[in-house]
Design a protein around this nucleic acid. Structure first.
Length: 491
RNA sequence: CGGGGUGUAGCGUAGCCUGGUAUCGCGCCACAUUUGGGAUGUGGAGGUCGUAGGUUCGAAUCCUGCCACCCCGACCA
């Protein structure tokens, strides 16, 4: 493979695109804005899925599946929801094709027009709440705690692999509750689940917060989010958890009978993360050599590269390599022994670095003789020779260290890139020269938020949950403010 | 959707201005020698030049439409 090396520092977005392709994660398809997720990329997504799925089930949720298509009329039932999504919907208008008699081409059969158009789901609140109406009669039917793994379509103007594609994979949780308090607790619980997953599995530190009214999900009363900071200083929204109040229950007439025999509307939440997390993963840890994967997510955690010249050496080295592979497998480590003899060790080293394999073990005749192995870690690129005894436990420990190191490194970077500013000049200067999050006072109005966005493209990423209350003056208008919020340029 | 750019073999490219049937490197196949940081030699395969039209005796090359991607805006997870 002739890999074109593009440096992060020179052109961040070209570096990103190049990395996604070269590391075999995904590629553009024949369909505009839609990507093909390749086996190696999909394997990483599957690991994300299984880690998240386990957490969802541990918190009492069940998986279910709802239709891809949503009748158009469902969208008009919740006004702000339709406002939010109308501009990016794919619509099915016909159900049949036919051969045009004149041209011989396949055309849409005009006689097969649907009575009511179907929307390809951009999110499933409407079809799900329409269904919940029939599932809920009494407080005894609540809560309903459901998650769906699905694809959704949002017709985006400008797409980027994983970060924003017209079709993407995600999970969407939709829960129904008897009280606002319970629904809010659910919303917060799922935000914690996302934060735990992001930090402990992806090794990406996140800030938990909630969105301003302007950035809120269409139809939500409150949108909680986790925000990550990428290496180029731009913020990425990595997951959201919405408290929907009774908006969808009212729109779809979902009521329940309380203990006191009163009719009440059901309280709702929804929460989701998508294949965008792949983008977060790539942009948080990777370098000019390629992908860097945290061990807990890596499809291959350890690769063993045997080195040999002659036939006898090959047998000797492979025997030892196999033995090591077996001992690693016995500890549940995902290991690959790459015994291909048509690629040089140097080629393999570069290849597995590109793919982000956390640990590489090289073993040659010299090692077999000395009872050693060479261990290289992807995160720091350090190489060292070590005694081959008790390899499995040493490697297991090393994988854990790498996981921690990646998180710590990303955390240090983020902490260095949260700048507290009190004047508009400082604000602009920081945004221009340092980027990252800017912690500043804001007067709480959407008008100011929009003016700031217009002036410098920075938006309020979130109001952190653990925010200190302190009085100050809005960085833009000078009006009084009771707390700081986090601004950044965002993906 | 606006402004700019790009599209030639799996990947990266030369050729385009000045029209004559496509260059080179990597990869691929075979054999041999190799293998401790992207091996070498010899032979071989692989191309509707993004796509549809037009101009021309003749188009990768000139003209027009369309499509896709990249960068910058607007929109957004």
């Amino acid at each position: 493979m002739d890999i074109k090396k593009i440096k992060r520092s020179e052109d961040y977005s070209a570096w990103y695109n190049n990395l996604v392709k070269n590391a075999d994660l995904a590629e553009h398809s024949a369909v505009k804005g839609c990507m093909v997720i390749k086996p190696y990329g999909y394997a990483i997504w599957e690991t994300m899925q299984s880690e998240l799925d386990r957490r969802f089930k541990d918190t009492g949720h069940q998986n279910a599946y709802f239709p891809l298509f949503i009748p158009k009329s469902f969208f008009s039932k919740e006004a702000s929801h339709v406002d939010g999504f109308a501009k990016e919907c794919a619509v099915v208008t016909h159900y049949r094709l036919k051969v045009d008699e004149k041209t011989g081409e396949i055309v849409v059969d005009p006689e097969a027009k649907l009575e009511e158009e179907l929307i390809v789901r951009p999110t499933s609140e409407t079809i799900i709440w329409n269904t919940y109406r029939d599932w809920i009669q009494s407080y005894r039917d609540l809560p309903i705690l459901i998650n769906q793994w699905a694809n959704v379509v949002r017709w985006e103007m400008r797409t980027r692999l994983f970060l924003r594609t017209a079709e993407f994979l995600w999970q969407e949780g939709h829960t129904a509750h008897a009280s606002a308090e319970e629904a809010i607790a659910e919303t917060k619980q799922m935000l914690d689940v996302y934060a735990d997953f992001a930090e402990n599995i992806l090794a990406v530190p996140v800030i938990k917060g909630f969105k301003t009214a302007n950035e809120r999900f269409a139809g939500a009363l409150e949108t909680y989010c986790i925000e990550g900071l990428m290496q180029d200083g731009k913020a990425l929204q990595m997951g959201t958890s919405h408290f929907l109040g009774q908006n969808f229950a009212k729109a779809f007439d979902v009521k329940f009978v309380t203990k006191e025999n009163k009719q009440e509307y059901v309280w709702a939440t929804s929460w989701g993360v998508s294949t965008r997390l792949m983008g977060a993963l790539i942009m948080s840890h990777s370098d000019d050599e390629g992908l860097v994967l945290p061990p807990r997510l890596a499809p291959i955690q350890v690769v063993i590269v045997p080195i040999f010249r002659k036939q006898e050496e090959q047998t000797l080295v492979l025997d030892k390599a196999n033995e090591i592979a077996q001992s690693l497998k016995a500890l549940g480590i995902r290991v690959k022994l790459d015994a291909k003899d048509n690629q040089s060790p140097g080629y393999k080293f570069a290849e597995y670095e590109l793919k982000g394999v956390p640990v590489r073990i090289a073993i040659g005749p010299r090692d077999v003789q000395n009872g050693t192995i060479e261990v290289a870690r992807r995160d720091t690129k350090e190489k060292q020779s070590m005694d081959a005894s008790d390899v499995a436990h040493k490697i297991s420990h090393l994988l854990e260290q790498i996981q921690q190191n990646l998180f710590q490194r990303a955390l240090d970077f983020r902490e260095e890139h949260i700048t507290t500013v009190d004047t508009w000049d400082e604000f602009l200067h920081t945004l221009e020269n340092k980027s990252g999050f800017i912690s500043a006072h804001w007067d709480g109005t959407t008008a100011t938020e929009l003016k700031i966005k217009e002036a410098c493209k920075a938006t309020i990423r979130c109001i952190p949950l653990d925010n200190k209350q302190e009085s100050g003056n809005c960085v833009f208008t000078g009006k009084p403010s009771s707390q700081r919020v986090l601004f950044a340029k965002a993906y």
